[in-house]
Structures are given as structure tokens and as C-alpha cells.
């Protein structure tokens, strides 16, 4: 419904990633179904969706690991997978969790992956590996066998692998998986600094809260379909605002609201309702925009006061992205299928 039109707004040259009608079928199941992504250059792009909604599959197709059943992908302006050789050296990736040779040290693993990149200069390899390890805080464990790494350390090493060379695009699939809160904060910090360097960062996550704070743009996947995308602010706006009313005269207030065409809800969506000494909390969603007939917040307060409702607290709350997420995916954080 509110899904923004695809790349129509931005010319392709300004897009780091652009997919058109991208679909991937596994047997009878459409893992990705007609996705039109438009990731602007320089953005920090949150790719959101519950588990199994098709995020990793989309990323695999973007990186040329899997072939699309139909549709096309352009990465950094080039056709994929045809231009894979010129594109991928400029892309750092973490896909479906980190993976390493357990019998090699962290540094040896990175050296190995870097050697696989034909464009990575061999002369600076060791220095670049050291820098990448320092950047994710693993310098002390560089010579430890990966077998002995914790899940969080592996995740960091995976991110370090994506940072081995200067990249124009970073694709990070669930980068905070397995990290402690401190690690999560560090990753957020890292993403910000990468973006500050001018890279586009494409972060997928099923945990919206982790991404919300750092993203400039986001897209939401649900069961293989792209249900919304755009600048974060627009996505938020597209969500419903609501009023929050604190009053001891809940019954009267509800009647007044219903009279004005609102649907108040005691306790509310966010489960914030509590009967304290100040009264009860009522929530009522506000219709989007200034739809005809809908009361403005100030008219609502005036009507409440006129009806002798004791208004002890009143606020208009901007809908959170999380509400929007739940609204669009319709299934919260449940796993699809």
C-alpha cells in the first residue's frame, strides 16, 4: 500500500544497488518475489524483515552467489553477475554469518580470503589484515586459531574480512548476530564511521531496533516481498500517529473520542496503560494526514475539555518504525513459514 515506487525517483547512477523484479524460487516456494530495491549511494540502508523473509537470498543474488530466477540486479551501477569481477572487489560482504577455516588463525583466514581477490595488492596484504583486525578489536587474537574463537569474535572477524580493502559498498547480513550489547554498539559505531568515509552500507537485520538508530534509509521484506522502502523519516511518517491521553475520566473520554470518529483503546498497543493516581492512559490512532472529517489534536483537546474530561496528560506520538514493521509484516518477529 504505502510501498514507495522503486527507483523511479533516483537515477540509476546514484544507486549503489538496484534490483528490478528480482525473484528467486526454491522448488515451489518464492523466497524472493518481485523485489525492486533502490539503495542510494552513501546511504546506510537497513534491510529489514523477519527470519525467512528472503533477505539473505536477496543478498546472495546481489553478490552473484546464486542466480535469480527472474529480474535483474545492478550493483555500483554495473550489471550483476555479468560484471562480477569488476564489482565485487569494491564490495565488502558478510553473508549469513561468518565462516572460517577453524584450523587457521584469524589473520591466516583473512590472508586467505584476501588472496582470493585478484585486485587486492599482495604487497600490502599483511598491513591491511592487521588494520582490519584492529578496526574490529581483534588484534590481540590475530594469531589464535579460529577454532578457539567465540561466536562474537567470529562475527567481528567476519566484519574484518569485509573491511580488508577500501570498499564502496558494504553488505552486512545480520552483523550483530551473536554480539553482546557492547559489541552491538561497536558495530553501530563502525557502520557510522564507514558511512562517514563515504561508503554505502547495506545492513540486513531481523532486529529493527539495532538498525533503526544508524540507518538513513530502510526497506522492509515480508515473505519474499518488499513491502516498503524509502528514507527512514518517510517510513516513519507513513506510519500512524496516535494520541495519548491521561485522564481519570476514561469512560467519558472514550465516548467523546468515539463521537469524533476515533477508536480509543485502553492499555493500547504499547501496553502502556496503567491506572495510577493520575488516572488511566488511553490511546487512539490518528488517521494519517489531515483526512477530511478527522479532528486535529487541538480540536480533540477542546472537545474533551468541553465534555468535562479532566485532561491530565495529552501527547501526539509519532509512530515508531517498529510499529510500522509489525504493521507491514503482520507477524511481528515470528519466523515466516
Amino acid at each position: 500500500m504505502t510501498a514507495l515506487p522503486p527507483s523511479a525517483e533516483l537515477p540509476s547512477a546514484e544507486l549503489s544497488i538496484e534490483t528490478r523484479g528480482l525473484s528467486k524460487r526454491f522448488g515451489r516456494q518464492m523466497a524472493v518475489d518481485g523485489v525492486d530495491l533502490a539503495v542510494p549511494r552513501g546511504s546506510v540502508f537497513g534491510f529489514l524483515g523477519p527470519n525467512g523473509s528472503g533477505k539473505t537470498t536477496t543478498i546472495r543474488i546481489m553478490l552473484g552467489l546464486a542466480a535469480a530466477s527472474s529480474g535483474s540486479v545492478r550493483v555500483l551501477g554495473e550489471e550483476m553477475p555479468r560484471q562480477l569481477r569488476t564489482v565485487l572487489p569494491r564490495v565488502g560482504a558478510l553473508v549469513e554469518g561468518p565462516a572460517f577455516y577453524p584450523f587457521l588463525s584469524g589473520a591466516a583466514n583473512l590472508l586467505r580470503f584476501d588472496a582470493a581477490d585478484p585486485e587486492a595488492p599482495a604487497g600490502t596484504r599483511r598491513a591491511r589484515v592487521r588494520t582490519a583486525l584492529e578496526r574490529v578489536g581483534l588484534a590481540h587474537a590475530a594469531d589464535k586459531k579460529v577454532r578457539a574463537y567465540s561466536l562474537g569474535m567470529k562475527q567481528r572477524l567476519g566484519i574484518a574480512n569485509a573491511l580488508l580493502a577500501p570498499r564502496e559498498l558494504l553488505v552486512l547480513d545480520e552483523p550483530t548476530n551473536g554480539l553482546d550489547p557492547q559489541g552491538t554498539r561497536e558495530v553501530r559505531h563502525l557502520v557510522r564511521s564507514l558511512a562517514a568515509d563515504g561508503a554505502t552500507v547495506f545492513v540486513s537485520s531481523h532486529l529493527l531496533a539495532e538498525v533503526e538508530q544508524i540507518c538513513t534509509h530502510a526497506a522492509i521484506m515480508s515473505a519474499g516481498r518488499l513491502v516498503a522502502q524509502g528514507p527512514l523519516a518517510e517510513l516513519r511518517q507513513a506510519g500512524q500517529s496516535r494520541v495519548r491521553l491521561l485522564t481519570p475520566d476514561a469512560g467519558a473520554a472514550a465516548r467523546v473520542m468515539a463521537g469524533l470518529g476515533l477508536t480509543p483503546d485502553g492499555g493500547g498497543i504499547s501496553n502502556g496503560g496503567s491506572a495510577g493516581t493520575w488516572g488511566e492512559v488511553l490511546y487512539a490512532p490518528l488517521p494519517a494526514g489531515s483526512a477530511a472529517g478527522a479532528p486535529s489534536p487541538e480540536e480533540l483537546v477542546a472537545a474533551l475539555v468541553a465534555a468535562d474530561v479532566r485532561v491530565r496528560g495529552f501527547a501526539v506520538e509519532q509512530g515508531s518504525l517498529e510499529d510500522r514493521f509489525v504493521e507491514l509484516t503482520g507477524e511481528g518477529f515470528d519466523v515466516a513459514q
Binding site: L65, R85, L88, Y101, P102, F113, A116, D117
Partner: peptide, 18 residues
């Protein structure tokens, strides 16, 4: 099996070359 194949290919090692 290790999962390292996807990182080699994303490096990109090139399938023929690998």
C-alpha cells in the same frame, strides 16, 4: 561445508579460477 566458499567467491575468486 565450512561456508568459506561464499567468501572466496565474494572476494571474488572467480569460479573458473577457483
Amino acid at each position: 561445508g565450512l561456508g568459506t566458499l561464499r567468501y572466496l567467491l565474494a572476494a571474488p575468486a572467480g569460479r573458473g579460477r577457483l
